[in-house]
């Protein structure tokens, strides 16, 4: 469902599911995502992490009528993103009644060497 969001389409993000049924996002490199020459823009990496967090929550069967709202996000940039395809996956740390804590990471060629990690608090819509 995240890949149907106009903003996800603007970035060229699409969804995939791993062998365990966990949702992940993939984002091919494109000149429109570049920051300083030869590197993926930091804001784009942050946005991909954020979309991964929202996708993980949507995978929990979150109510569709009202969207969950981001409260805040913390992004650590570990290394420069190259102009190659990027991937992101998130894990729900705690699914509270009102607040969800989510961890996400983003990698390129090697899943064990992430280029960025993120943490998010998300407010669940009432009655979810």
């Amino acid at each position: 469902m995240i890949e149907r969001a106009p903003y996800a389409q603007l970035l060229g993000v699409c969804e995939w599911t791993d062998a365990d049924g966990n949702v992940g996002l993939a984002m091919p490199a494109s000149p429109a995502l570049e920051g300083r020459q030869g590197f993926l823009y930091g804001g784009v990496i942050g946005s991909l992490l954020e979309l991964a967090c929202l996708a993980a929550l949507a995978g929990e069967g979150e109510a569709k009528e009202e969207r969950p709202r981001p409260i805040n996000i913390t992004i650590d940039f570990l290394r420069g993103g190259l102009m190659v395809e990027s991937y992101a996956q998130a894990r729900i740390v705690r699914l509270g009644k009102r607040v969800v804590n989510v961890d996400a990471f983003c990698w390129q060629t090697d899943r064990d060497n992430p280029i960025a990690t993120g943490r998010m608090h998300i407010l669940r819509p009432p009655g979810a």
Partner: peptide, 9 residues
């Protein structure tokens, strides 16, 4: 909020 992150950066 993605564009917000990029604009802040």
């Amino acid at each position: 909020s993605g564009p917000v992150i990029s604009l802040i950066d």
